[in-house]
Design a protein around this nucleic acid. Structure first.
Length: 903
RNA sequence: GGGCCUGUAGCUCAGUUGGUUAGAGCAUGCGCUUGAUAAGCGCAGGGUCACUGGUUCGAGCCCAGUCAGGCCCA
């Protein structure tokens, strides 16, 4: 009997599956989009719309897409998709950064003895392999863009634009050549990057050396300043001594073997000096602040020149004497100090690590520096300057390839003058919008303090630094020649530079015989930093400047800065209007960067595809949308699993709406109630919140607004409340039709608002709602005002509902009722107007509270009293109603249901 | 060591110009439902707002310091 009446109900009907099956459904969806040329169709549809240009920062073509990379690309996609749906033309041209050491390093490690041309061939193959791999993975994540025509920094046209930009730098006199210290492998005869250095234990002679004072504002002139060094071979290049301005120094008598000397060193280091050398302190010393020692002049222990005492912050008290031997040609700190204080940059060592004439001791010329160590020690001793010699075990950098110890030496490099650009760059920074706003301070700080930009690298896998050298070794910096090289590169790629011989190139560009090409490449930050020229200025669908650059916070010093500096040199304006940064993905348990915590035994999965294959791209996208990305982005597998619940809730909400709309008729007569007006007002609020949040790139606000709307407003309220109407009322009942009208509007808005985030699921739902049209071609709902009266009504009803729910729960605990529909509820309302209002619309209130029987009474406080109803249960709608039994044909139904089944 | 930033329930987020018992969703527990059913609904528990000190009639919010973490430098 009951099952017969069940057939008369309007239960939800839809083929939209409850189970998502994203891992199989998404690839099908992708194929369909692909076949449809959806990206191209969207661009075509928006071709006359105002543009919003997000310019993709190129990831390095190396490795799989991990969660950090996925975060970045999905955020960009959220921008592109939401701007598109907000009515903009938002093209996305993805790019890759292809040159650079990490690739060259891998290639060279695989096979030794390659020529530069071979290294470049293998590096290109390597880069292209990972471009293809990453492209497939980005696509799989549902990121829309012109994947068939990305920009690659190894494209000949891109490389040519780099060279043309370089020509502009030359014209504007922004390029110069100067010495700079580098890590040098004399074994491989090349400069090395940090990554190519291996640290190994090494035993070095450690010596204490006395520098006699020749003049001093404070120190006694019969004293000597004591330095300590583990690289005696750098003494010929000594030009100064550095002391810490913050520490205390003493001048004190020391004796050893009957000899007494007055020595100056840091007070804190005296004890270990004595222990290591056997020189014992005598009597009381005089103390001085390090700052007071400035102005003291000492004499080099074996060369006829002075070594002034200078103060420097980098001097520490960890080892040595607190007095640091300074050789500007052989150390980074030394070099900086030397430059700042106007010292020479003396570097008497050649490519092979052999002393040159400049070392000042004829006998040492041509000797390998490490082999010369004992000679230097002996010489210092012979001059009476040696206070002690020990052997010192330390971790010392070695060349990964030749395994030889590394030396610091200065070589000629090319630089871009930052000073000429700094003031304008700082102005442009102020005119740019930074999100979050502290980005302004951060990039201002880096640009203010940044030294000149060293742009030359002694590498093969890169764009050649387009410089020729005259026979006398002088570089030829000629913009016109560089432009002609660019034209060559445009046709043949930069390989031409490496493949063609010096005479061929000289002949081609009309340079005198004997001219040679340079072997340096450009810093890869020049490559990516010039994308505003090679991409924004070149692609017809793009323009200069971009509306938005969006990268991780490390790019304040990286791409944001390199792009800005190069743009100042060429355009004089900023290449972007807004810069948006996101944090790094961190492990939620340790709050450490995910790549760090992955070190050691158990490796937590961090590849994006691991999660795509496990749960689907929409889950990864939902994760991206759910977090506040301006800080570090928390991540854990558990958190990811939790998001699955949120996803299912949203999916089921879409499903029930679709199910309830199976017989939707837009022309049907409707009769909306308070709850219908309320839910539409709430929808308007949610729409406005989402539009605003998308506009401000605050995607987590979209996520939370939509998640709560689905979970609370729809699932636990509106859908639950309207079930009785939807299922039990006659099909054409105007209130039922009103609920459908509301649900239709809700589904339409909700799906479109979800579309940028749940790109696949929204499309799937839309295919049931509007078959044949992609949701990604649609626009967001228009801005509108949420009816304040309807909202206020709803708030009041919710208060009453909370009260009644508590009372019902209590009654259930006391076994008065088990099911809410068994309850007869008496509601005491103090406000006579309110009582009056709802008395006339009691059925609406009953519906809202999902009750069988409700009575209103005057009272003080608002309270609800529960008793068990005496009315019989309607077999069709399960409500207990007095009218059950009145119909002869349907004795087990209430009057409403009788009417519904007899229609 | 320096610059910039972060720290609110188990998790993700709200907390308006400092103002009554700090909010929401998820998760958890206990019920209800079996006509969204590998679904749905209700109720409940859970936070000395990183820590310490200060300004104030009053601080999650302002100030100083400490601790933890991040990015970039050194």
């Amino acid at each position: 009997m009951g099952s017969d009446y069940k057939k008369t109900l309007n239960l939800p009907r839809t083929d939209f599956p409850m189970k998502a099956g994203l891992t199989t459904r998404e690839p099908q969806q992708l194929a369909a989009w692909e076949k449809d040329h959806l990206y191209a169709r969207i661009q075509e549809a928006r071709k006359n719309a105002p543009p919003f240009l997000l310019h993709d920062g190129p990831p390095f073509a190396n490795g799989d897409v991990h969660m950090g990379t996925a975060l970045n690309k999905i955020l960009k996609d959220l921008v592109v998709k939401s701007k598109t749906m907000a009515g903009f033309r938002a093209p996305f041209i993805p790019g890759w950064d292809c040159h650079g050491l990490p690739i060259e390093f891998k290639v060279v490690k695989e096979k030794a003895g390659l020529t530069p041309v071979q290294i470049r061939q293998r590096s290109e193959a390597y880069a292209r392999k990972y471009i293809d791999l990453q492209r497939e993975q980005f696509r799989r994540l549902g990121v829309f863009g012109d994947w068939d025509h990305p920009y690659l920094t190894l494209d000949p046209s891109y490389e040519a634009d780099i060279l043309r930009s370089f020509a502009v730098f030359i014209e504007k006199d922004l390029v110069y050549r100067s010495k700079r210290p580098v890590l040098w492998s004399y074994g491989a005869q090349t400069a090395l990057a940090e990554a190519e250095v291996e640290y190994k234990d090494k035993e070095s002679p450690a010596i204490h050396v006395a520098f006699e004072i020749t003049a001093s504002p404070v120190l006694p002139t019969n004293a000597s300043v004591v330095i300590w060094t583990t690289t005696p071979w750098t003494l010929p290049a000594n030009l100064a001594i550095a002391v810490s301005p913050k520490h205390t120094y003493s001048a004190q008598n020391f004796t050893k073997d009957g000899e007494t000397r007055t020595l100056v060193l840091a007070a804190d280091r005296a004890a270990s000096f004595s222990a290591e050398t056997g020189w014992m302190p005598q009597g009381e010393g005089q103390t001085f602040s390090g700052a007071a020692l400035e102005g003291t002049i000492t004499r080099h222990p074996f060369l006829d020149r002075p070594a002034p005492v200078l103060t420097a912050d980098f001097v520490t008290m960890d080892t040595g004497t607190g007095c640091v031997h300074i050789a500007p040609g052989h150390g980074a700190d030394d070099f900086q100090l030397g430059k700042a204080r106007g010292l020479d940059i003396l570097c008497p060592v050649d490519d092979l690590g052999l002393f040159t004439e400049e070392c000042g001791v004829t006998a040492w010329v041509g000797k390998p520096v490490f082999a010369a160590n004992p000679l230097v020690v002996e010489y210092v001793k012979s001059k009476g300057a040696l206070l002690g010699v020990t052997s010192y075990q330390h971790s010392y950098p070695h060349c990964w390839r030749s395994k030889t110890p590394i030396i610091f030496r200065t070589v000629e490099q090319f630089f871009i003058r930052i000073e000429a650009l700094r003031a304008d760059a700082l102005k442009a920074i102020k005119a740019t919008k930074w999100i979050p706003d502290w980005g302004l301070k951060r990039i201002t700080g880096t640009v203010e303090s940044r030294p000149d930009w060293c742009i030359s690298r002694q590498r093969s896998w890169g764009v050649p630094l387009p410089v020729f050298y005259r026979p006398d070794g002088e570089p030829i910096l000629d913009a016109n020649v560089v432009r002609r090289v660019a034209d060559l590169v445009e046709k043949r790629g930069t390989n031409a530079w490496f493949e063609m011989s010096d005479p061929e190139l000289a002949a081609m560009f009309g340079l005198p015989a004997g001219t040679t090409k340079g072997h340096d490449t450009l810093d890869v930050w020049i490559d990516s930093g010039l994308s505003h020229q090679a991409v924004l200025r070149r692609r017809p669908e793009l323009a200069y400047p971009a509306d938005l650059y969006l990268e991780a916070t490390d790019q304040h010093r990286g791409w944001f800065q390199s792009s800005l500096i190069t743009a100042m040199g060429i355009e004089g304006t900023s290449p972007y209007k807004t810069c948006l940064t996101h944090g790094f993905v961190v492990d939620v348990d340790t709050r450490e960067k995910i790549s760090k915590s992955a070190q050691g035994g158990y490796q937590k999965p961090t590849d994006a595809m691991h999660f795509v294959e496990k749960s689907g791209a929409d889950l990864v996208r939902l994760w991206v949308s759910s977090v506040n990305f301006t800080d570090d982005v928390p991540f854990s597998e558990e958190m990811f699993n939790r998001l699955g619940d949120a996803y299912r809730r949203i999916r089921n909400t879409l499903r029930i709406l679709l199910g309830n709309l199976h017989d939707y008729d837009p022309s049907a007569a409707t009769e909306p109630t308070a709850i219908d007006r309320w839910v539409l007002a709430r929808l308007a609020e949610v729409e406005n919140t989402c539009r605003d949040a998308y506009e401000k790139f605050e995607f987590h606000r979209v996520y939370h607004a939509l998640n709560q709307f689905c979970a609370v407003d729809l699932s636990s309220l509106y859908v639950d409340i309207t079930k009785d109407r939807m299922y039990c009322h006659a099909t054409e009942n105007p209130r039922r039709r009103a609920a459908q009208a509301a649900m239709h509007e809700i589904l339409s808005s909700l799906t479109r608002l979800l579309a940028p985030i749940l790109a696949f699921t929204a499309e799937e739902a839309w295919s049931y709602f509007r078959p044949g049209i992609s949701v990604h071609m649609e626009l967001f709902p228009e801005k509108r005002i949420a009816d304040p009266e309807a909202l206020a009504d709803g708030d009041r009803l919710l208060q009453i509902r909370a009260l009644v729910s508590q009372a019902l729960e209590k009654a259930r605990a006391e076994k008065v009722i088990t099911n809410n529909l068994e309850a007869a509820v008496t509601l005491q309302l103090a406000d006579a107007n309110e009582r009056e209002r709802w008395s006339s619309r009691l059925p609406e209130l009953e519906e809202f509270l999902i009750l069988s029987e409700l009575h209103l009474e005057p009272g003080g406080e608002v309270t609800a009293t529960i008793s068990k109803t005496s009315a019989p249960k309607c077999e069709r709608c399960w409500r207990h109603r007095g009218s059950v039994g009145q119909s002869a044909t349907h004795p087990t139904l209430c009057d409403r249901c009788v009417a519904a089944v007899t229609l």
